[in-house]
């Protein structure tokens, strides 16, 4: 049994030697053609990889932006109960939102009557809420 294993191992080793020698002795034309094929394959992999990230990176960025935007607009203001805001129509919060708005800011700067109106509206709101 051991002798047979030795003979098989000898055959394996000799076959490998002969094969390796034949690989080493490949002619220039064949080596050149193989190199060209390899470069084409690597370029194909590059194109496949590039189209991959060019597709998913912008998609991921847009998705992340949408998630962040939704999270910002849906998150209630800290320290103010959403129930209380809905129930009272909080004047201060309304004013902050108006100021945050570009049009509201113009109104504040240009029209002093606005302050009077705001004052009256604020009193009315406080009165109606209370």
């Amino acid at each position: 049994m051991e002798e047979q294993d030795d003979r098989l191992e000898q055959t394996r080793r000799r076959a490998r030697e002969v094969f390796d020698a034949s690989v080493e002795s490949l002619d220039a034309r064949t080596r050149s053609r193989l190199s060209r094929s390899r470069h084409e394959a690597v370029e194909a992999a590059n194109r496949a990889g590039a189209s991959g990230w060019r597709t998913w990176v912008p998609v991921a960025a847009v998705a992340a932006t949408v998630i962040v935007a939704v999270a910002i607009w849906r998150t209630p203001e800290r320290g103010v109960s959403p129930v209380a805001v809905a129930a009272s129509g909080d004047t201060a919060l309304d004013a902050v939102e108006m100021l945050a708005d570009g049009e509201g800011l113009d109104l504040v700067e240009n029209d002093l009557e606005f302050y009077e109106w705001l004052d009256v509206t604020g009193l009315d709101s406080a009165g109606s809420a209370g």
């Binding site: 094929s37 390899r38 084409e40 394959a41 690597v42 194909a44 992999a45 496949a48 990889g49 991959g52």
Partner: peptide, 13 residues
Amino acid sequence: QGAMLRLARSYGA
């Protein structure tokens, strides 16, 4: 050549 291309395109990643 076909095997190289197929490997690169389908399994390169």
